[in-house]
Nucleic acid binder design. Structure first.
Lengths: 227, 227
DNA sequence: GCAGACTGTACATTTTTTGTAAATTTGTTG
DNA sequence: CAACAAATTTACAAAAAATGTACAGTCTGC
């Protein structure tokens, strides 16, 4: 699940943001002033930064510029007060990717957060398509074919396969699968992962009992091999 | 290298855009008002037009309509101010290919410019018209027919269908639909998207309960398939 | 105030996900 | 190489989640 860093000096707002973000399932890091925020960014590499324009000491403006100057590409969502400066200067010069003016509606903010995160996830995409054996998978269309024939796959199955494929050749542990596919919040206790693996094999392997591509590594986890 | 025409009355923004575009290697033409822009388009046939929605005398909207009315296919990227956000749908309806709200981040804008140029270079334009099953839709005229008979469709329904069609084959999530069709400001919490999908199916699908073109991808979103 | 469009809600229905237990496979050790 | 323990697979039922849909309330433009 994505990691979000919030840098905001107003405790009430910070708290509200953090709560809401956690509720939506994000991992949240917080800082009340620029310096700490800067260090957190360095240390934790969040996927998104929410940054107040007005901060004590180092302003959000400076921080943003500093980060961009260092080549940090992490999307930044700026919080600005309406009176705070001509909007367009902010947007154009700073390198923020989006901004919201206070007071903001939390729903709007969350929508923008999702949109920004979606943008990075979709651009830094692994190949949307994949072939192995007599199988073709298209992750963007959510379609899989086996010997040209359509195979229905579920959301979790796609997500599982995607992770395995992203790390093709490497072993992925059940724990890693649980973290990535299921997220931290819900944590199925049982052999759920195994079940989904079984599902995948049943749908994609020529002989599910003797899998070629989705391999078991006994005592460790699973591994995808393309050929 | 591609030629880009920028039509924007604010000198600071125009300058910033031009600099950035040149830096990225585009040939840049500029105009501060619609009439000049119109002439430049005629004379120079740029590959892309970046157009401010609010212009003195002839608005960007008018210019856009005028160009499209004359059959000009050049992709248009519309710049809109935040407060005009409700116009976004209008802008797209009138034939703009994409839009960015001010203040925008230069990086985002550049990304969209590249995307638009890539789109023309790779595939043909989105047709203003579309046929599937026994349905014909004309996005420019806001008309749909089913088995030759006129079907009334609402604004949101058109916008929804348009997004699905623009990404035919791919899955579009509810969140993306909300962002694109509804915008960030108003953000219905509920099953609004589903309802509109239901509406579309009722009007366009032969058997709405067993949709062929507007498909559900469980746990993910919706997907349009032409055949 | 009316008509049409949009949004929210409730509930039925469908699909997916999860847990369990028995069967099978794998790895290890004597 | 047999025997045993540990790990994994499989099938299936139960639970949970997502979706479809009808309808009612709300909003908007005329």
């Amino acid at each position: 699940m994505s990691k979000v860093l919030v840098i905001e000096d107003d405790a009430a707002i910070l708290r509200g943001l953090a709560d809401n973000l956690k509720f939506e399932g994000y991992e949240v890091l917080t800082a009340v002033e620029g310096e700490t925020g800067y260090k957190l960014q360095k240390a934790q590499k969040p996927d998104l930064i929410i940054l107040d324009l007005m901060l004590p000491r180092m302003s959000g403006l400076e921080l943003c510029q500093k980060l961009r100057g260092e080549g940090v590409q992490t999307p930044i969502l700026m919080l600005t007060a309406r009176s705070e400066e001509s909007d367009r200067v902010i947007g154009l010069d700073l390198g923020a990717d989006d901004y919201v003016t206070k007071p903001f509606s939390i729903r709007e903010l969350m929508a923008r957060v999702r949109a920004l995160l979606r943008r990075i996830h979709s651009t830094a995409e692994l190949p949307g398509q994949l072939r192995f054996g007599d199988v073709e998978v298209d992750f963007r269309r959510y379609i899989a074919r086996r010997c040209g024939k359509l195979v229905e796959m579920t959301r979790k199955e796609f997500a599982t396969l995607r992770l395995l494929v992203a790390r093709a050749g490497e072993v992925v542990t059940r724990d890693e699968l649980l973290n990535e596919v299921w997220g931290f919040e819900s944590y199925p206790i049982s052999r759920t992962v195994d079940n989904h693996i079984a599902g995948l094999r049943a749908k994609l392997e020529r002989d599910p009992a003797r899998p070629v591509h989705i391999r078991t590594v006994h005592g460790v986890g699973y591994k995808f091999v393309q050929s």
